[in-house]
């Protein structure tokens, strides 16, 4: 038996919640992307060609969009669940007949919706800078969904473990942000020295951004199938970890 309506209600509550503060959850991230684009693209577009026929601005757009997609997916779940924990209103969900899997799916889907909505809005802004010519929308969506899924799941994990906002901020600033910046959003890792190229290949966010860029441009640093497999494996790993954590009740049902 599965509580479909319960799961759907929790999902829609989460979407409703971030839409109520859309200035903060959608508009602000899009403005951030716009600023990045203005700064980087206007300074560098004349000088760099990353792949044959791909100028810097064109290279930058998918990287920026995907970075924002996954950061927002993370922020959505970490802040929402942690706020519920702090306010104590998490009991309403915990008292209801919702399984851990149902809770996980509801939150993860809400994070994906937030990520994808930010992505679409960001893309619409970028249209002012580049000609939108998407190579393969399905590949692009696959990486957007699974990337938001992974980061949404990590958001849940950090909210479960955190005791104060500092813990969430630390995870965001010392893990998510560096991984996102060092994932080849702003540059091709081919331009790095050999050692740093190898280090970059250990970063799961690199494959998300690289695969997403492939969907956009049809060119990437790494073979797209390999990226898809690695990102999927990572999704399974992180989801399992989150589900086990929920199952054990760590800091939620103790």
């Amino acid at each position: 038996m599965i509580n479909l309506r319960g799961m759907y209600t929790l999902f829609s509550k989460e979407v409703w919640r971030f839409l109520k503060v859309a200035i903060q959850t959608i508009v602000t991230p899009v403005i951030t992307i716009l600023l990045y684009l203005l700064v980087f693209a206007s300074v560098l577009s004349e000088h760099v060609e990353i792949y044959d026929g791909v100028g810097y601005t064109l290279f930058l757009v998918p990287g920026l969009v995907m970075m924002s997609v996954i950061q927002n997916a993370f922020a959505n779940n970490s802040s929402s669940l942690f706020q519920s924990k702090l306010n104590g209103n998490i009991v309403f969900m915990l008292l209801a007949p919702l399984s851990n899997l149902e809770v996980f799916i509801a939150y993860t889907c809400a994070a994906i919706v937030r990520g994808v909505l930010v992505g679409i809005s960001a893309f619409l802004i970028c249209v002012f800078f580049i000609t939108p010519d998407i190579y393969n929308i399905w590949i692009l969506l696959f990486f957007a969904f699974i990337g938001s899924g992974v980061l949404g799941s990590l958001g849940l994990l950090s909210a479960i473990w955190a005791d104060k906002w500092d813990h969430i901020a630390a995870f965001q600033n010392f893990v998510v942000l560096p991984l996102a910046f060092l994932s080849g959003s702003f540059y091709s890792i081919k331009s790095l020295p050999g050692f740093w190229q190898k280090v970059s290949m250990l970063n799961p966010l690199f494959y998300m951004i690289d695969g997403f860029r492939y969907g956009f441009l049809g060119v990437s640093d790494h073979a797209v199938m390999v990226s898809a497999v690695i990102v999927s494996a990572f999704f399974i790993l992180v989801s399992t970890l989150t589900l086990v954590t929920l199952q054990k009740g760590c800091k939620l049902r103790y």
């Binding site: 509580n3 479909l4 309506r5 319960g6 759907y8 209600t9 929790l10 509550k13 409703w16 919640r17 109520k20 519920s84 306010n87 209103n89 309403f92 969900m93 209801a96 007949p97 919702l98």
Partner: peptide, 18 residues
Amino acid sequence: DPFFSARQMLRLQSGYFG
């Protein structure tokens, strides 16, 4: 939940119970 009204909270809770 500071995001919602009483009626919304009750409807959400009712939804959680299917």
